[in-house]
Amino acid sequence: MITVIGFDGTPLSEGARAAVDAAELVVGTARILDEVGVPPTAKRHHLVRLDEMLDEIAPYDRVCVLASGDPGFFGIVRTLRERGLDLTVLPAASSVAAAFAAIGMSWDDAVVVSAHGRDLRPVANVCRAFPKVAVLTGPGAGARELGTALPDRTFVVAQRLGHADQRVEILSSHAAAHAEFEDPHVLLCLDESRLTSERGWLAGFQGVPGAWALGESAFAHRDSMITKSEVRALALAKLGPRPGRLVWDIGAGSGSVGVECARFGAAVVAVDHDAASGDRIRANAAAHAVAVEVVVADAPSALDSLPQPDAVFVGGGGAEVIAACADTPAETVVVALAAIERVPETISVLTKAGRTVDGVLLQSSRLSALPGDTHRFAAANPVFLLWGERR
């Protein structure tokens, strides 16, 4: 029998204490084993490597595994269940709950991600996209590294939660980038300009939006200079926006594509050379309650300083801009074109970058009213949509 016990620094419950006292083998980090107290009749195993732990517990009938907080929340319960082991789980409060409690903040609307043993890029992208994120950190993937990647955020760094020497610091992401922290720790990444007191009904990420490819009237734009909803629908399908991904919207104009990607949970950087367009993009993002980082600058010179994208939409710009986007690690580069003469050039640029190219000519006609309560279908301007994917 394997009993998995969560430990949050407080005395064990009666049931957990009895399980530890009756165990033949007790597994945990050296710190937790010392604090809990292992009876002399039981063997101690310091948890360092999971494969070693699994080999160690095999011969024993009564095993206790001690883990921080709630072991079923990004914890060891999943690993043991994947090995087909039967478990009794006695959880404690999760470290995320403890970190939010330490600053007196609710967290039903927080997104929780784990950076432990994982690539930091998607974690950083979630922190860009959402206003309240809890990060379970690991060596080389903590507050210092995320502070370097994330400007203008408030960090709450909680170390040794539940213990007598617990430390909870509130600092800027810039300050965190130049500080030292004990591993592991819990990081709360807050965009205070977007935090609300609105009561929700679904914890964490609210899922995909109820509608997409919104009508042009959903966005402020200039003289109908906006990617039309029919084009946007296919562009979104090719860009694949979702939490953990970063999308560039180049030549963004109204930012309609970028805003729609953000509504799917992606992090978005919108680039346009026009300051008035930058203001419109910010207003459209605010109107749809999403985060879009706006860069007012000429592409492609501005692109080198941006975080690397997972997908790119090019709504404006010449061959040089498309080539710069095609040379990024992005899985997909989607280009919208109005002029037929630009199609062969764009195909060539995407192909030379080592991408497999496909595309469609989108021709749509919209229902339009006529006098006498009659209707017709009015043709919209055709648009070429090309995309280049990494082989």
Rank of each mutant, 00 (worst) to 15 (best):
S114M: 06
L136A: 07
V296M: 06
S94P: 00
A58E: 10
D152I: 05
A30K: 14
F7R: 08
A58G: 03
V111M: 09
G255S: 09
D109S: 15
D61L: 07
V268S: 07
L120G: 01
A58K: 13
D70E: 06
A67Q: 03
L362R: 00
D310S: 05
A93R: 13
L33V: 01
V314W: 10
N381M: 14
A213L: 04
R199L: 13
V156H: 05
A235Q: 03
A203G: 06
D152V: 12
T3E: 08
F100E: 13
A23L: 01
V257D: 05
D272E: 06
V4F: 12
L50C: 04
A283C: 07
A158R: 10
A286H: 06
V156Y: 10
E293C: 00
K43E: 13
R282I: 04
H185R: 03
L190R: 04
A380S: 15
E345S: 12
W107M: 07
D61N: 14
R232G: 11
F73K: 12
T88G: 01
G28I: 01
A30F: 13
L362H: 03
P40H: 15
F7Y: 15
G162V: 07
F74L: 04
E293Q: 05
L90N: 04
R62V: 08
S13L: 10
A378N: 11
L187N: 05
A67F: 05
W248F: 12
G210L: 06
Q159W: 08
F264R: 01
C64A: 15
A42R: 03
A369R: 05
V111G: 09
R280P: 13
A30Y: 13
A19D: 03
F130Q: 09
V65K: 02
R222N: 14
G142P: 03
L150Q: 03
G354F: 02
M1N: 10
